[in-house]
């Protein structure tokens, strides 16, 4: 028996080496796998929290209208009623957080109007467009159209 083993001893040593390697691997795995991995699926469950805790930049219309209810009322019947405030005024979560400390500048109207209403073959036919130079001859858009209520019948109602 002992004689038989003698000629395989080197193989036993090699097997031992593999065994140790395997053991180290298993132990390291146990230590290193994040604790919440696999709770919900094959991922770290806390990655959901990482994704949901990103800082907000756009406050959302509801937050704007909380204070600016007068503007909301004015826009309620205008052709622009479905456009969110921050589509033109820019991302203003910082202002919503701290209305007195952070105060946004009033944006220049014309470039904003042109961004949407400049004629372009690719735009759908139902959408009202103009060739700005021909239409206003360099005049600013808000000389005639009030952005919050752009129709002519409403001109002047934008206090």
């Amino acid at each position: 028996m002992r004689e038989l083993f003698k000629d395989k001893e080197h193989l036993v040593r090699m097997a031992g080496l593999f065994g140790v390697g395997l053991l180290v691997f298993v132990v390291l795995r146990g230590v290193l796998i994040p604790a919440d991995f696999g709770d919900l699926g094959h991922y770290r469950a806390s990655a959901l929290d990482d994704n949901s805790s990103v800082e907000l930049r756009f406050a959302g219309r509801a937050a704007c209208e909380l204070c600016h209810d007068d503007v909301a009322a004015e826009r309620a019947k205008s052709a622009h009623r479905s456009i969110a405030c921050e589509a033109c005024h820019g991302a203003l979560a910082v202002h919503a957080d701290n209305p007195e400390a952070v105060f946004p500048e009033r944006p220049e109207a014309t470039p904003l109007c042109v961004a949407c209403h400049e004629a372009n073959v690719t735009k759908p036919a139902w959408f009202p467009t103009v060739i700005p130079d021909e239409h206003s001859e360099g005049e600013a858009c808000d000389e005639c159209h009030m952005p919050h209520a752009p129709g002519f019948e409403e001109v002047g109602s934008d206090g």
Binding site: S52, S53, V54, L56, F58, G60, A91
Partner: peptide, 21 residues
């Protein structure tokens, strides 16, 4: 991320928020 930080708080995504049409 479909603005996961927004939709989980009852807000819409930034792209949908500002889409004028």
């Amino acid at each position: 991320s479909l603005c996961y930080h927004r939709i989980t708080k009852g807000l819409t995504t930034a792209c949908c928020e500002v889409c004028p049409t």
